[in-house]
Design a protein around this nucleic acid. Structure first.
Lengths: 191, 191
DNA sequence: TCGCCATTTTGTCAATGTCAAGATAGGGTG
DNA sequence: CACCCTATCTTGACATTGACAAAATGGCGA
């Protein structure tokens, strides 16, 4: 992030600058390998400037998670109805917005009682529940099917992000995920 | 962890005491929410004592991950051959040894070049590869099937541990995982 | 008895998260 | 235009942390 001022005081939207700097830092060294002061330095402000906007480190991560869940819900809703495409969108978000995703599913890092965050979270969950219905063999299995489909794509994302699929390192994660979901959903074409 | 000495110097197996203290701390506040000095305090030794055994914080987490992968491989091998039971064992380990599991799949926290760790990791992977064969519809799909089965159980574990399955909060995770895996593998009985 | 050496302690330093108090600017009100 | 008001940012401070260096301890063999 470029400094938002050159000299003297400046009332800019530090909020955005700090969140962007945090995303960069998380991309480099994980959700816990950075410091607030370093972010402030990157944004060109004093070490305590972020505190006014986010309160503390947990507050900043709460903002990141909330924004992430919002983007996540948007992405899933764009594919809603087509179970395969929702799954692919899930993986695409995880890989394409890794810093967000890594914070979102680490609740000990942020405050779950944030209202915006909770709303976006439920919005994303609703897409998963409604879209997995077509995969269910019988209404009695709807809930299990949702959990299975969610687990499949969430696990694929987690394994990919943690580098646990080394033989797949040079493949396109989205294409591989599509093949895996197809196999799961009993479709024929193995991509 | 109880202090390992009462007064004066003591040459005990501080190594074990510190690892146990770390597991406790990780269980309480996640893989990053604790401090080396706090561990030393819990073990009843001076603040720099752990450094001799582990080098630095990353070294301690490497030891935790290596030990975890060893126990993990043992657990999977005990169920080897039966794909359903391997999957259940995977989830049981994640839930029953949460601190280990949370460190193991966060490679940015430890050193992956540790030889013991790599050996145990490959041992666990081999069980997954060989045991998922029975689920594959055709030899050409073996690799996709392994990735799918692994993703399913890994994702279930991750979602459970992150509290993302709230409606399942009071169910037995092992039984629920068994049902989900059965559904995935095309078996009939929905548990 | 003596010295060796793994182990642990003590002391120190820069960096970090957080709090409190002061400085700045820009807009609204008179 | 002068004034103040408030959000925003800075400065200064403090306890805690991870890491390093040097000293202390004590068991064990020569």
């Amino acid at each position: 992030m470029r400094p938002i001022k050159q000299n003297g005081y400046h009332h800019g939207n530090l909020r955005r600058a700090v969140i962007d700097a945090a995303l960069e830092a998380i991309a480099e060294s994980g959700p816990a390998g950075w410091s607030l002061r370093e972010l402030a330095r990157r944004a060109g402000v004093s070490h305590a400037a972020p505190a006014h906007h986010f309160g503390d480190k947990t507050g900043l991560l709460t903002a990141v998670a909330a924004e992430g869940f919002g983007m996540f819900a948007d992405a899933l809703e764009r594919a809603a109805g087509d179970a395969l495409e929702v799954g692919v969108a899930y993986v695409r978000f995880a890989v394409g917005h890794r810093p967000y995703f890594e914070v979102m599913f680490r609740p000990e890092l942020y405050r779950m009682d944030d209202p915006d965050l909770a709303t976006a979270r439920e919005r994303a969950a609703r897409v998963l529940v409604t879209s997995s219905g077509t995969l269910s063999p019988a209404p009695a299995q709807d809930r299990l099917t949702t959990i299975a489909a969610w687990s499949l794509v969430h696990g694929f994302a987690g394994l990919w992000l943690s580098g646990s699929l080394p033989e797949a390192a040079h493949e396109d994660p989205e294409a591989l995920a599509r093949s895996v979901i197809r196999l799961f959903s009993g479709m024929s074409s193995p991509g």
